[in-house]
Every structure is written in structure tokens, then in C-alpha cells.
Design a protein around this nucleic acid. Structure first.
Lengths: 294, 294
DNA sequence: TAATCATCATAACCTCCTGTTATTGGGTAT
DNA sequence: ATACCCAATAACAGGAGGTTATGATGATTA
């Protein structure tokens, strides 16, 4: 197997017809070039150049392979341009995993900014449940997930915080009597509660709150999507456990946060990515845009 | 400038989607491949693979450059075939410098043998004066010269003897009285002499003979071509100085060798090639055929 | 569920490839 | 005649690119 670097030297020598000049172009010494050309000829088991006192000339066979080498090198040089297109964000695709809620309540506004700044980058959105998004992430299908951080961190993943939000119990005006008063956790037991299904960060968090405050309420409903959950709160089906971020735009209309003491926990959300993998430049820029235009 | 060997490794890894398998294919260790891929990604300043627990996958950018790499490597692999065609003598050209006399009297019979054995090799014959042929040789225009060896060897050239011949004085039947008797050099002074022009090996040799034997005969004619010289001998214009090789086929018809004591010198003829240059395989085979079918 | 296998990353180390400088020998140009 | 240009060679140095050993983690299998 021929070392491909030899062909690069071959090419320059063939072009300049002069080993000394080629060595200058290649930024190596003349004996180095002489040696490498000899090596190539030895390994191909045929002379390629005719040595004269004025320089070197390709022989017939050398001339033939020169065409191939030239084409090959051109193709390999093109790679620089391809890379450039990607690193300068002239092209590329970002594959993001994100829940519909976070999408609507957090990412949407940033997306447009990014798109305006880098109009050639395609953004693919994957909106499976977070658990599935993490699987997709680990299988290389998506570049990163934007999501709430779990209680226990996965050793294989990187967590880059973008913001915090607090879990809150939210009710609609059916429960207007709870407005403007402070409740204790125990008080919740009198009301129907709506929680997200297992497995989810939200449900884990709620259970954590129950345990901490020695209460245990069987939820009236278990709902997969936090989106849908909010709809049920709006309809007055019960008091729901969601993040403030998801409801803040709709508060004071027909929904309010139940004032509890102690309050449910605050959590972080942000970029979740693979530890072993380096971000592409477009992903880096995307994250940058999100962070700068907070 | 990216080391081209990295692309070979890149290619195999991309194909196998598995660094370990790629390392086996490449006959190097797995950490070596890991390191080289990392190096390539660093130098291109962009990730190319997504690492998963099952192996690695090309990312978008990697996929793009893969096409270029694949094409480039295909082109470079083709080189093996091109070289093979040349080393196996399926194609190629041999450029020989040779005098018309040597061509007719020596090489012609070998040429056909070579052509029968290697019908795809083109033989280009250059028939300038030997001096010019040597210049062409040094300028890389011809592969080798078949010619008489000079008295002093050029340090830059290789001399490979193919045969010997002797210089002789030849006369036609106009000088029938010289037939079957032995002459001394001094006796030649009574007859018109035809020599080859300067500069030529033949003339040098004649002068050498004169000096050695203390004679000095102004030639009746100076002729550039030995071919023509023989024609003049045939016509009886004088006694000519040529090699036995050039006249042996025509002796005993209307020409004979003048029996001199001491005889003119014996000389060698053969392949003259550039010391610094390796013979192509076709040239080697050509010389082989000449030597084996003596 | 435990054990084994597969995969990639890292560290420490070593070898030989690929460079270096110095020099020779010859041709070319002024 | 002199200075320059070009390729080949020798002796040597440094680091690229390999090695083995090991670790961490997920996938697979008994």
C-alpha cells in the first residue's frame, strides 16, 4: 500500500519538473523530496521520472499516473471548501430533540433569530418524549436535546444549562377560592390533582414533593403530554403540576399558580448532548444565539 | 495541509462504521485509528463522525466529504493497474537511439523477436549521429542508445556491452592484388583511403591506428555516414575503414578485408544509458531479448 | 440478573519514517 | 573562468504514528 503523501510530492515535482523548486513549494528540503520520489518509484517498482541536469521529466508511465494523481488531489482539495461551507454555516442541518412544550414556550422565539442570522442552515426538530429523544441522541440521530435536566445525570451526557424554572401547581377559576391564599401541601389532598405519566421528569418531581412533605395524592388523571395537561387545567379538571415556564403566558387570564409553602422545586433546563462527541460549528452557533438573545 | 493518509483511514472507518473493524482492515491497532480520526477532525476543525456505543456514524459533513475521498482513492487505486500494464508490458514505448548501420546490421533481427514477444510495446527509433543521440539521451528524449563505445567513457553514462567487432580496412575488387596477401600499415600509403568524418568513433579509431603504426594518410574522402562509406568502397573509390560487423554480409562478393599486421583494434558496442536513471521494465526486457537471442 | 462481549477513549511508551544539514559531482549561464 | 543550478548521498535528529494495557459503558446472552 502506497503512502498517499508520496503522491502529493509526486504531483508537485511533476508540475515543477524540478526537485529543488518542488521542495520549496512543499516547504521541505530538497534531499527529502529526492528520497520520497525514489521511495515512490521503488514501491511502484517502476521509474516515473527521467533525471536530467536541468531537472526531471515524467516518463511515459509517470505521465499516465499523473492524470489520476491530479484528479485525486483536486477532489481532496475540494474537501477544504466543503468543510468551509459547514464551518462558515453556509450549509448544514441541525437536528434538535425538544418537547413541544419547550418548543412553544422557549425555543420558538430563538429559532427565528437563528434563522435570520444563518438562513442556509436547516433545523430539524424531533419532538418525541424526552426519553426517546435521549435514545435518538445516543444513536446519533439528533445532535442535541433541549430539555429539563433529570435528577440523576447520565454519565454519558453533557448538560449545559440555558435557564431555570420552577414547578408549580396551577388551577383555573373553578378553584378561585385558592387564589391569593397560601396553602400547605396537606391542603392539596382536598382537590383533584393532574400529573404527567411515568416516566417523566415532571412526575418524578411531583412524587419527590409528595415524599418530602408527607402527602400522597392519587392523581385524578395521568397525562402523557404536558401540553395536554395544561389544557385539562384550563378546563378545570383539577390542579395540575407543571413548570412555570409552560404556563406563564396564560396566567391571570383563566389560570393562576397555587401559592404553596414550601414551594415545589426549581429545575434547570438546557442542552443535553453526548459527552464523547464534539459539537459541529452550526450547533455551537445555534446555542450561542439562544444564549445571547435571552 | 492535511496528511493524505488520514483520508485512507477515514474512508475505511466510514465504510465499516466501526473503528475496531477498520483497524483490523487497516492492519493497525484500534487506538491508532481512534487517534488518527481525532487528528483529522482536529485539523479539519470539524467533527466528522458521531460516536455511539455500537460504532461510529458519519455526520452530515463527513458524509459529504466521503464522496470526494471515495472518488480520490479510487483514482489512486487505479494507479496500480496502470503500473501493472507497464511492468507487464501490456503497454509502453521504448525510445532507442541507434545508427542506421547498427540498426540494419545488428538490431533488425532482434526487433522482430521482441515485437513478437511483446506486441503491445511501441519501439521508437531515433537515428541521429551518435553524438546527438547522447545529447537526446541526456535530455531524456530517448531511453538508451545502442552504439559503439567511445575510447573515453562518460562518467554520467552506463555502458553495457552487447558484442564486439573489429575495425577493418575493406577494399573492392579494383584492389584485387591485395587479396590473400598480408600487408603492413606502411603499405596502405600507396592507396586511396576513405574515412568517416570527425567527430566519430570510427575516425578516432583510424587516427589511433595511424599513430600507433607511424603512418599518416590523408583520406581521399571524408564521409559522415558509415552506410554511405560502404557504398563508396563497393564502387571502388578507395580502401575504407569500417567495422567488420557492418560489412561481413557483403564480403566475398565484391569486397574483401585487407589482411593487415597488426590488425586495427577490436571495439565493443552495446547499450549506453544514463547512470542516474533506472530502466523501465520494457527497456530491461528489450535488452534481455537482444542478449538471449544472440 | 449477572456475566460476557463489543466499542471507543486514554495513557505511556517506543520505533522508524521523514525530515534535517552538509557535501559531492556535474551541467549551465554569464 | 566563475558563479550558479540541480540531483544524489550520507549521517543524523525529532516526532508522527504506531504499540500494549487499561478503563468506561452499552449491548448481548446464558
Amino acid at each position: 500500500m502506497i503512502n498517499l503523501e508520496l503522491y502529493r510530492i509526486f504531483y508537485v515535482v511533476a508540475e515543477t519538473k524540478n526537485i529543488t523548486k518542488a521542495s520549496e513549494k512543499l516547504c521541505i528540503s530538497q534531499p527529502a523530496v529526492t528520497k520520497q520520489i525514489k521511495k515512490l518509484e521503488n514501491e511502484l517498482n517502476t521509474p516515473l521520472f527521467i533525471r536530467t541536469k536541468r531537472g526531471v521529466i515524467l516518463n511515459e508511465c509517470g505521465e499516465k499516473i499523473f492524470n489520476n494523481v491530479k484528479q485525486a488531489l483536486t477532489l481532496l482539495e475540494e474537501i477544504d471548501n466543503i468543510i468551509n461551507d459547514y464551518t462558515k454555516l453556509n450549509t448544514g442541518t441541525i437536528k434538535i430533540g425538544i418537547s413541544t412544550s419547550l418548543m412553544k414556550k422557549y425555543l420558538l422565539k430563538h429559532l427565528e433569530k437563528f434563522h435570520n442570522k444563518y438562513p442556509n442552515i436547516i433545523v430539524d426538530i424531533y419532538t418525541d418524549p424526552t426519553k426517546d429523544l435521549i435514545t435518538k441522541l445516543k444513536n446519533g440521530i439528533i445532535d442535541f436535546v433541549i430539555g429539563k435536566f433529570p435528577i440523576t445525570f447520565d454519565k454519558e451526557l453533557n448538560y449545559h444549562e440555558l435557564g431555570k424554572t420552577r414547578y408549580v401547581f396551577v388551577a383555573n377559576n373553578n378553584y378561585f377560592n385558592l387564589k391569593n391564599i397560601q396553602l400547605k401541601p396537606k391542603d392539596l389532598e382536598k382537590y383533584p390533582i393532574i400529573l404527567q405519566e411515568y416516566p417523566s421528569n415532571s412526575r418524578n418531581s411531583a412524587e419527590k414533593y409528595y415524599e418530602k412533605n408527607n402527602i400522597n395524592i392519587e392523581p385524578r388523571m395521568n397525562i402523557a403530554s404536558s401540553n395536554l395537561l395544561i389544557d385539562f387545567i384550563k378546563l378545570g379538571y383539577g390542579i395540575g403540576y407543571v413548570t412555570e415556564l409552560y404556563v406563564k403566558d396564560e396566567l391571570n387570564k383563566d389560570m393562576f399558580i397555587v401559592n404553596l409553602n414550601p414551594k415545589p422545586e426549581e429545575i434547570s433546563f438546557g442542552i443535553i448532548s453526548l459527552k464523547n462527541n464534539v459539537m459541529t460549528n452550526s450547533c455551537k452557533k445555534f446555542i450561542e444565539v439562544i444564549k445571547n438573545n435571552n
